[in-house]
Amino acid sequence: MDQLLQTLKDGVTLGSLYALIALGYTMVYGILKFINFAHSDIVVLGAWLSLTIAAKLLALMGIVDPPAWMGAVVLVGAMVACGAVGFTIERLAYKPLRGAPRLNVLITAIGVSLLLQNTGQLSALFGTSPRRIPDLLPDTTLLSIGQVQLKLLDVVGAGTAIALMVALEWLVFHTKIGRAMRATSHNVNVAALMGIPVNRIISFTFVLGSMLAAAGGFLWALKYQTIKQTADSSWVLLGLKAFVAAVVGGIGNVRGAMLGGLAIGMIEQFGAAYLSSSMKDVYVFTILILVLLVRPSGLLGKATIEKV
């Protein structure tokens, strides 16, 4: 019973994180139809920026115990910075390739990803050794059922992720810019003909995705505290799982990404708890292969028809 509850809790907290990151993949894929490989690196950047901002702020104020509002400041700071980086990447690397073959865009994305990974490891930036983020939240236990403890950290983490997703959902489905995004994702050329400033919408999508990625990185840092070097393979795995979540949910579908993230988080945690924890990465990819075999368009996705 304890194990079940614990696994459920872990699945939800991890799954909401995957969902948050998956949204970035799915939004860019929805509009530009390519896998933005650099997305996971924005997550990493978000984590490291959170650490840097938190450390700098604490040093500046000369205190050890941060007040409650500081977490929010760090989060917003990281989101703004990452949004700016996402904007720059799109303008410099992806925009010149609009209309180029998909393979070229994919290769560029890999290039951008490698660039971010390896620039981040320069000693002038984050270096190559892992660092610990200062504690931004008190280690309070809100609720204990048996051995299972629900901590403030869990609630804040999952809560922030869910709040951001609700905000995004509102933005995409209930605002003018959201309608423009959906139109662009449906057909870029027609959207442009209808007077939608397609380039601005694409930029906006990148900024939005990068901000969510930054939030993902911040929450990751809160959850695991130790942040590994930017080219560490665990980051690539994180990005991959988030992408798998997007595919499982139906790539290009915002709600699908949330559902997929939760599903992947659950599968990973239940597999780890009840089968073998050392193989938890394997389950996720088994699921990916199964989905591709049985329902390649994902849970909520529609089969696409290629125009000939």
Partner: peptide, 26 residues
């Protein structure tokens, strides 16, 4: 499974495959 589909799925499946091999060897 991945080459039946058009698009970039192969990229993601193979990237995952490499990482799985790494984990399994460990």
């Amino acid at each position: 499974p991945s080459l039946r589909l058009r698009g970039d799925y192969l990229a993601i499946v193979t990237l995952g495959f490499g990482e799985i091999i790494r984990v399994v060897i460990q």
